[in-house]
């Protein structure tokens, strides 16, 4: 507070402790500049006090119906699907490689019609994600976004690992080039949230069941191994 600028102290008195209070003119200037800056600060806080509109606190859950999350809130990784239900992911795996926690597993396949490599499953592990937003930023096609739906608590941790894309198949741009709607339909295969190489693996989940190795069809949701091995197998099978 009281040490405004003691950078340019006079060099002749080196060895002494130099402080603005010791200088002839420094004393009052220092006191007044101190008071002025304090008043400035008080003005800012008083503005907050006198303007209740500056309050950012949300009265959740009372205002659950009207709650509008902030635009930049990061809670749920989502893949943007356009009005036709198509996404733009090419399965390039850049996000997969860039995730610091290996929370993303991009499983690719060869298209049954064209034979081209494309997205099969986009598997996201919410439980190990730190919501760093790197995946959203590195994606060259702007496929991903962070959603504000923060009510992510579940009773079974298997539910934290799921598929983001709604179908396996080429990206929206490629699909648009295919003229024949019959052929288009053949290229696409629907993918729901919990089918495939995720720990839940398409099971019914009546209440909370114990995780069993055999049932889950993979390593039972422990560690990040499951979708990886399954995924590469899956893509081999496709070929």
């Amino acid at each position: 507070m009281m040490q405004a600028t003691d950078k340019q102290e006079n060099p002749t008195r080196s060895g002494l402790v130099t402080a603005p209070e010791l200088k002839r003119h420094g004393f009052f200037r220092n006191v007044f500049s101190g008071i002025k800056s304090l008043l400035e600060g008080m003005k800012v806080t008083f503005h907050y006090l006198s303007h209740p509109s500056t309050v950012v606190t949300q009265q959740y859950p009372e205002n659950r119906a009207t709650l509008k999350m902030m635009e930049r809130y990061r809670a749920l990784l989502t893949m943007i699907h356009d009005e036709n239900g198509l996404h733009k992911c090419t399965g390039c795996q850049i996000c997969h490689d860039n995730c610091p926690n290996a929370s993303i597993n991009v499983v690719t396949r060869s298209n049954p019609v064209s034979g081209k490599k494309e997205l099969d499953r986009y598997i996201w592990r919410m439980d190990s994600c730190t919501f760093c937003n790197l995946c959203v930023q590195v994606c060259p096609f702007g496929v991903l976004k962070m959603d504000g739906s923060f009510e992510g608590a579940v009773y079974d941790r298997r539910l934290f690992v799921f598929t983001l894309n709604h179908y396996a198949g080429p990206a929206a741009g490629l699909l648009a080039k295919v003229a024949d709607p019959e052929e288009r339909k053949k290229m696409i295969e629907p993918r729901d949230r919990y089918s495939g190489p995720v720990p839940l693996n398409g099971q019914e989940l009546a209440g909370v069941k114990a995780l069993k190795k055999a049932e889950s069809g993979c390593c039972g949701g422990s560690g990040g191994c499951c979708s990886d091995s399954q995924g590469s197998q899956g893509s081999k099978e496709m070929k």
């Binding site: 907050y48 006090l49 209740p52 309050v55 950012v56 606190t57 009265q59």
Partner: peptide
Amino acid sequence: KIAGHFQCRLGPM
């Protein structure tokens, strides 16, 4: 309460 509003919060509610 006052501290809350000084800091853009609501305080106890």
